[in-house]
Design a protein around this nucleic acid. Sequence first.
RNA 1: GUGGAUAUAGCUCAACUUGGUAGAGCACCAGAUUGUGGUUCUGGCUGUUGCGGGUUCAAAUCCCGUUAUCCACCCCA
Length: 422
Amino acid sequence: MSSAHQPVQGMSDIAAPEIRLWQRVEAVAREVLARYGFEELRTPIVEFESVFTRSLGATTDVVQKEMYVFEKGGRHLALRPEGTAGVMRYAAGLAPGEAEGARWYYFGPMFRSERPQAGRRRQFHQCGVECLEPPSPLVDAEVLALQVDLLRAWGLGDCVVRLNTRGAGGETAAVTAGLRAALQPHQADLCDNCRRRFSENVLRVLDCKTEGCRTVVAGLPPVTDFMSTASRDYLAQVAGHLDALGVACRMDPLLVRGLDYYEHTIWEITSEALGAQNAMSGGGRYRIQIGGRELTGVGFAIGLERVISVLQTLGRTSALLPAPPPLVWLVGLGEQAIQGNLALMQQLRAAGLACRMAPGGSLKSQMRAADKSGAAWAVIRGDDELTQGLAALKDLAAGRQESVPLDRLADELIRRAAASRQ
RNA sequence: GUGGAUAUAGCUCAACUUGGUAGAGCACCAGAUUGUGGUUCUGGCUGUUGCGGGUUCAAAUCCCGUUAUCCACCCCA
């Protein structure tokens, strides 16, 4: 039975303190993205189902088994399972020539109806990038450099990028056939899953985790052997540009990406700090037919839950989180003191200070609340102070307290807050 | 969609094997200190044992079902 306070299976509330990490991850990313000339694009979460079936590949698991689809007013709609297709749908609606050259990024929730597990939710969040400039190894390399820069800005600069190629769009059949021919003599050594993959999704044999399959795969020729010289050359040029950009990455002829729209450069970043779902980010060059147009671009998507999980596991969150601003906590005893505190509170907030007060209670409980909040100072006003026109100003960390005339109180707090920010 | 584990106080967990009134730590509240937080001491509050059914004189405990969570497969960020 579902409980009234529980969210839908596989969907999570994101609240403090973790939400602060999300905000920082996003803010830091926006700075980096702007440096590379990317603009935010916000597309709807709901699209026509066909937007995804036509671009991701109608036979992929993402489309066949994992999409949230529903019908409304006779239209077949879907919650987006990924971000690229919607961006391309938008691009296809632009005037000819306008989309080419676009540099877009997006943040937002994606939905896949999978069984939840470590690092996998039914609603999850991605930061993605799409660059629709005319295809060239240089653009691919630059987008990959952006990807690495983002990770570095989050404190994950030591993550390893694995790079491979899918070959030109027309070569997929040749690659698949070549791989099958190479695997044919070893079929008996493959696991049950890979014997099924052999016919259904032969590329996936390459990244099987089973030991037997891995030894078979290690003896195969690299997938580039089944591609044209032009495709191999394209990959070599990407590698050369990456070198010039100062981006380190590792060639991995076994790297596979799932969606149908990829061609040429593909890459992935995994982390051992994650569970079995260890891909933190993946990207590549793609070609999508939509609305009678063919669009090509290069981009990547980063799983934000996974990035945050890695940051937490590696203990790197504090570097990303800024120190909270010093807080003033107002303590008041009696109606008159509380009224005075209300005015002071808004005066301090207007001056840019963080200020709070308890709704009431004993002096002791108000002080306890001040302490729990981590406030830097407490301002205490009661009968004694009222009669003398004073307030007690206490430095909570030092435990020192002094009396300050009311007319100087706000200025004194502003002065101390400014000093503490040095 | 498949498989395994789990579900007890706000949180982390014990009690389950061998059925007999539900327990600890942390957190919270109060007092020691009637106008002063953090440390300490003392006391206090907190439960349809996920939900539904069954067996039994008696169920947190055994059985069945169900929902959720965690982990893995498939697949993917």
